[in-house]
Every structure is written in structure tokens, then in C-alpha cells.
């Protein structure tokens, strides 16, 4: 068995009703306990940020994060071992949104 660790999961999302329970459901169905949960406006206007701390095996967290990101209204999701996080994500998200905007202009 892979050992369990504390992970910090971040998700940047659109501000849509129902996303909280959609995301919580991904944890519930695996009986993963959410140790800490914060939802607040991010530095980018109109975009919300979830911070979720949970204890699990890393392989499981990888799938959890991808399943969070799979939700239509989730923009990006990341995980890191708690307390070791870098600050690059917000730039990532900005860049992603910029690319998407260019793409949408080309449609």
C-alpha cells in the first residue's frame, strides 16, 4: 500500500452554483475526508478558488485532481504535498485563460 500523506488541492473555477457539491462528491465516493476547505474569489476577477486539504495516497490524488478538472466549470486544478507549494499556479491559470481567449477569437 502506498503511504497516505496530506495534500493540498487547488482548483480555479467559474462561479457556478452546484460546483461545491460536485467537487465534494469526488471525495465522498472514495471516503476521502476533507480536512480543510476554503472557497474564495481568486486574484483573477470572476474566478473562484478552492483549497482542499485531504489525506490520501498520491496515486489517488492524481486521479482526484484530474476528475476535478474534468468538471466543465473547473478551469485548472493542481495538487501538492501540503506546505511545499510553489506560487506558479496563478500565472498558469492566467496563461491558460489567455490561450483560450485567443482560441475563442479564432472560432
Amino acid at each position: 500500500m502506498e503511504t497516505e500523506k496530506l495534500f493540498e488541492i487547488t482548483a480555479y473555477t467559474e462561479n457556478q452554483v452546484g460546483l461545491l457539491s460536485a467537487i465534494a462528491g469526488i471525495f465522498t465516493r472514495r471516503s476521502l475526508n476533507i480536512e480543510k476547505l476554503l472557497v474564495y474569489p481568486s486574484q483573477i476577477a470572476g474566478i473562484h478558488k478552492f483549497k482542499i486539504i485531504t489525506r490520501a495516497a498520491e496515486a489517488q490524488i492524481q486521479t482526484v485532481v484530474l476528475q476535478i478538472e474534468k468538471k466543465v466549470d473547473v478551469i485548472k486544478s493542481y495538487y501538492e504535498v501540503d506546505n511545499e507549494r510553489s506560487c506558479r499556479e496563478i500565472d498558469d491559470v492566467r496563461q491558460f485563460l489567455q490561450e483560450r481567449e485567443t482560441e475563442s477569437n479564432n472560432i
Binding site: 473555477t13 467559474e14 478551469i75 485563460l97 483560450r100 472560432i107
Partner: peptide, 8 residues
Amino acid sequence: CHFIRSYV
């Protein structure tokens, strides 16, 4: 609808 920015 042909595009949703959070959805790829």
C-alpha cells in the same frame, strides 16, 4: 455555443 473557456 462553440466554446467554453474552462472546458477543453
